[in-house]
């Protein structure tokens, strides 16, 4: 097992562990840190899979910007009261049962399918090998080129979408919220 494959599994395990911390931690900041670990591990996986641009975006946008936003929200909301947590902890078993059911189905099906074709793991390790990646794959150059050619319409449409979102936010915020009454 060469280094790349080893690191792939290490990052994979870290990502799952981060997800578990996110799920089971009592304190919201610990959950946020679990999410951060999970995202950084994912960035590592992208880098190993030769998607360097995506790895950088993952670190800058998710681990950077979005984490700051999440932590801000946690600070602003200050969810610490035991009662509040208990209300949601009561519902945990339902989610747990659903999760276990889905996971069992998923793992069982995938195990069936994978055991029928034993070369799947070799396929994975081959796709991690840098030598097999197409030229210029995953860099910033093909990314920007695709953005302005193949995905031009999507790119422009997103800018219109952001404009719509700005109008939506302004129209909601400028309403006279103080005068609201219950009906």
């Amino acid at each position: 097992m060469d280094f790349n494959v080893l690191m792939f599994y290490v990052f994979g395990v870290t990502a799952i562990a981060g997800g578990l911390v996110l799920f089971f931690a009592k304190h919201p900041i610990r959950s946020a840190m679990g999410l951060l670990a999970s995202m950084l591990a994912l960035a590592g996986m992208y880098a190993i899979l030769q998607a360097h641009a995506i790895a950088v975006f993952q670190v800058i946008i998710y681990a950077g910007a979005i984490m700051v936003l999440i932590i801000y929200f946690i600070m602003l909301l200050d969810i610490q009261s035991e009662e509040y947590l208990r209300k949601y902890n009561k519902l945990l078993w339902a989610g747990g049962i659903f999760l276990v059911a889905i996971l069992t189905l998923f793992i069982y099906k995938l195990y069936n399918i994978l055991s029928a074709s034993p070369d799947t793991f070799t396929t994975i390790s081959r796709s991690i090998d840098p030598a097999t990646a197409p030229e210029e794959f995953g860099g910033i150059k093909p990314f920007s080129k695709g953005l302005l050619t193949n995905y031009l319409f999507a790119f422009e449409f997103v800018s219109t979408l952001l404009f719509a979102a700005i109008v939506a936010v302004i129209s909601i915020v400028q309403l006279d919220w103080k005068g609201r009454k219950n009906e």
């Binding site: 129209s171 909601i172 309403l175 006279d176 005068g179 609201r180 009454k181 219950n182 009906e183």
Partner: peptide, 8 residues
Amino acid sequence: GLKKFSTR
């Protein structure tokens, strides 16, 4: 949500 004076 764009409705005045309405929490509903």
